[in-house]
Amino acid sequence: MDLILASKKADKTIAEVEGLGGYYTWSSTQFPVLSQKKVAAGLLVLQPRGFAQPHYADSSKIGYVCEGECIVGLISPEDSKEEIIKIQKGDALPVTMGAVSWWYNGGNSEVTIIFLGESSDEYTPGEYCYFFLTGAAGILNGFHNEFIAQIFHMTETESEKFIKDQSSSNILIKINERTKMPDPSNKHELVFNFDSAKPNVEVKNGGVFTTLTGKNLPLLGDLGQSANRVVLEGGALFGPIFTADSSVQLSYVTKGSGCVEIVGLLGKKVLGPIVKEGELFFVPKFFPFAVRAEAGGMEFFSVITSSKQVYGQLSGGKKSIWEAASPSVLEASLNASPAVIQSFKSKIAKGAVIAPPSTI
């Protein structure tokens, strides 16, 4: 199986405006596994007063705020009600396919949001396809002037000006200081904050592992996706684990760097490089993987194509497969003495999916 599982930083610029930010993606030509496995990633960067125009996409995804804070408008086609949501660093926000959204940075510092999830294979497999309501790339520009005039009850002169005003507007624009943007709700049931959530696993001097599933946000059950975040101290190791429910995992390094090892069929290593901040790595279904942070530590955010997150744990702890296996089975399969297996199982029982730096 020939899979390219790691990528450098985003290589494709969808939109970029000086002083406002940009939207960037990973192309299927550089990272072909995205189209092969129908997953995608996008990175939105907004400077203060930067505004990403209203749009919808052909796929559902989960947005994670790496830095900063912004206001998001969401309109579901099902009820046509606009939800105004404030999101900040550490927040995850699901965005369903077909839902119209806009994104505004009303703060004083840059905001960075990574979007990960499944992609459609209808138009550009491995990439999200966006449909903008407004601006030069907006859908209104594609309809005849008479259509616009009739549907919006305008004169043709009014509709001509209406469309002309759109033609010079970019995907990203700057909001005038005098413009009063809508106020967001303080709390929202669609947002999950990883910074304040109780970790599923927390190891002293090692790090934390926090999951987001349909139990935390019911909408994820409809999306068929989930997410998690791993924060590792320098030298700490996460895993090895594998997805046991045929789902795949797409991960983005939000901070630091580390060595990612993925093992494929017949015990063959298929990935083993240093992955750095701003880069993606992909884990196929059933392939075990482990991550060890470099000296400065490492954080990565992942989206899994299942709402449940069923992992097989090959590391230490009570959920470890090694811990569950019978001693006699381990003796035979590992070709080890009873004394060695007893010592092995006692050490496994004390561990967890995260291991702190070795003191040996």
Rank of each mutant, 00 (worst) to 15 (best):
G22M: 05
P32L: 03
E294I: 09
S315C: 09
W322V: 09
P125K: 14
P288I: 04
Y252H: 04
K161D: 09
N108S: 15
K180D: 15
S320Q: 12
M181T: 12
Y104G: 01
A352H: 15
K9P: 00
E177T: 07
V17P: 11
K308M: 07
Y104C: 06
E158W: 04
G221C: 02
K86T: 11
I84R: 13
T157V: 05
L46R: 02
Q150W: 10
G267W: 01
N176W: 10
P288V: 05
E118I: 04
Q30A: 15
T211R: 06
L93F: 15
Y23Q: 12
I304R: 03
N186A: 11
E160M: 03
D58S: 07
F31R: 01
V275K: 01
P338L: 05
V231A: 13
E331L: 04
T305N: 05
S226K: 06
V340S: 13
P338Q: 08
H55P: 00
T155D: 10
T305K: 01
A40K: 08
L250K: 00
Q47W: 06
A136E: 13
N176T: 11
A352V: 04
A15N: 10
S328P: 01
G256D: 01
L223Y: 09
N170C: 05
I151Y: 11
L74R: 08
T243S: 13
M181E: 04
